[in-house]
Amino acid sequence: MSRKETDKITGVETTGHEWDGIKELNNPLPRWWLWTLYATIVWSIGYTIAYPAWPLIKGATSGLLGYSTRGEVAQNIAAVEEANAALTAQLAAVDLATLEADPELNRFATAGGAAVFRTNCSQCHGSGAAGALGYPNLLDDDWLWGGDIEAIAYTVRHGIRNEADPDARWSQMPAFGELLEKEEIAALVAHVQQISGQDHDAALAGQGAELYLDNCSSCHGENGTGDREQGAPNLTDAIWLYGGDAEALEYTIRNARFGIMPPWTPRLSDAEINAVAAYVHQLGGGE
C-alpha cells in the first residue's frame, strides 16, 4: 500500500509513487473524460455485435452486418470488373490489327495484358519477358512463328506442339544423330557457324553446305533464314534459343530440341488473350 502524501506547493495529494525523487500529483480527471470511457465501452459492445468478433471453435461470430474482408475484396473486384465491362467486351471482339488505332482500348489491353502475363506466362518467359534457354525471349525482334499481334494471339490461343489443340502450331525437327555421321554433323555445325557470321572452319563449312541443302533447307530455307510457317528458326541471326556455339549446335542437330507451349484457350478468355497479345506485341519486338 502506498503512503499518502500531499504536495506542499500545490496542496494536491500525490500518487504515493516516487521515481528518483519525482512524484506524480493525483489530480482528478474531468468528469467528461470518464463519460468518454463509458462511451467507448458501449461502442465496443455494439461493434462486437455488428462485426465479426468472438472466436468460436470453428471460425468466429459473423456479426449482424455480415461483413468480411474477403467479401469486401470480392465486392471490390466485382466493382472493377463492372466498371471495365464495356472495355472488356470491346477488347474480346476487337480486330487486333486495328487495336493500336484506339489508344484507350490499347492502354486497357496493355495494362491488363501485363497482369495476365505475370500470372500465366512469366513462369517460362520470365517476369521481364526475356525468356531463358529453351524459352524464347519476347523482347527481341526474332520470332519463330511470327511477331505481328495476330500471330502472337494465335500462338497464345492454340499453343505450340501440344496434343490438346488440333490447331496448335506444330513442327518437329528430326534428331540427326541417327541419320548422319559424326563428321557430317561437325560439317553442318561449321556451316551454320559460317552463315551466322561466327568463327568457323572454312573447309568443314564447305562440306556442310551440301549437307545443309540436303537435310536442313526444306525447313530452315536455302539461305538458313528459317521459315515461320513451320516455326523453323532463322540460323543466320545472332539469336539462339538453345545456344549458338559449336557444342550447343552439335547437340541440337544430333538430338533435335523443341519446346512445348500449352494452349490458353480455355484458361484465358478472348479478352485476356487479346490483352496479353497486345502486351507482348509492345514489349519491343512486335512487328
Binding site: 520470365g126 517476369s127 521481364g128 526475356a130 525471349n137 523482347l139 527481341d140 525482334d141 526474332d142 557470321g197 532463322n234 541471326d237 545472332a238 539469336i239 519491343g284
Partner: peptide, 18 residues
Amino acid sequence: PVRNPTFITLSDGSVRNA
C-alpha cells in the same frame, strides 16, 4: 533503366537497353 533483363541482343547482333 529497365533491369529485367539488363540488355537484350537483337537479331543483327546489336545490343539494346530499355
